[in-house]
Design a protein around this nucleic acid. Structure first.
Lengths: 162, 162
DNA sequence: CACAATTAAGTTGCGCGCAATTAAATGACG
DNA sequence: CGTCATTTAATTGCGCGCAACTTAATTGTG
């Protein structure tokens, strides 16, 4: 049995679909837990970064999260409207916008400390399993990023087999 | 060392963030590859299901993909506008809408057969690794789904202290 | 039969995520 | 010095994903 094309389409569904589904399931659990904090899942990720570097330009924030200004600008506006963050043009480089935690934003960290525990409980995974999964995912992301950069793999009309 | 709360927040970022990033990286690679077919990634998932059951109600489609009509209705409209799909009210149950592939939609399958191969090449993962990762992700999704249903985990309402 | 409960799609509103574009500031170079 | 390329945010447009609601058909119950 040499996995005919028909089976490939089925297999494929399971790979990408598993990731898609897991991501949404995670999102769903986070949504419930983060509701108390008044944060969305991506907003929480931004706050995590800010709690570690409590002032940094939008550019750097984007690099940490792999997000661009098209996503971050409106998101940060909402965080600012919520009083968690302040945005101000850098004095030395007027192009840059520095994002800084407010007192309230800093304070929220205390309430966020319980989140990881609750999430971990939801997964039912032990530290070991989490570590393994995370390693695999990071490996996957790295490979995919590389593939995205080096032109589309298998796309090259001239290219033979890779 | 008993992993203080401070470290938990850092760890947490890596778990959820890894999944988030991997999902988007995958999405990004699919976007490029699916561009040729004129499909988005979720539309591709829908087509995958339809290529296996070439006629089924929106409800069933949603069960396969874990999506509700709020997401599927507009998506299916676009697929219909693209000529890949036809939607018609079921005769025996007027509430239900049957989704069926058009000739064009069925034909597209041939062009889609190359997609899994190209994706697989992008990941750099072998069949074995894929299988393992998929198993872990499915396990994760199952656990998260269960947690989402059985009320919020770790939310212990009994413990008054907050 | 009448009438409430249930079920299936659709609609609306909001927040991402990303491509593409715009605007402003900075830097490089002749 | 002026011109042009680069960098940084912001904006626009589109497609998910989901909660909440609406509409219409079906089922269940008296």
């Amino acid at each position: 049995m040499n996995t005919p094309d028909d089976d490939w389409l089925r297999l494929d569904q399971q790979i990408c679909f598993s990731l898609h589904a897991a991501s949404r399931a995670f999102n769903s659990v986070y949504r419930v837990i983060l509701k108390d904090l008044g944060l969305t899942y991506p907003q929480y990720l931004v706050m995590l970064v800010l709690w570690e570097h409590d002032e940094l330009p939008v550019k750097k924030l984007g690099e940490h999260l792999r997000l661009d200004s098209g996503t971050l600008s409106p998101l940060l506006k909402r965080l600012e409207a919520a009083g968690l963050v302040r945005r101000e043009r850098s004095a030395r480089d007027e192009r840059s916008v520095e994002v800084r935690l407010t007192e309230e934003g800093t304070a929220l960290r205390q309430r966020a400390l319980q989140v990881p525990r609750r999430i971990a409980a939801s997964t039912g995974f032990g530290p070991e399993e989490v570590r393994t999964l995370r390693a695999h995912l990071d490996e996957l992301t790295t490979a995919l990023d590389a593939a995205a950069l080096t032109g589309t793999p298998g796309d090259s009309p001239a290219d033979g087999r890779s």
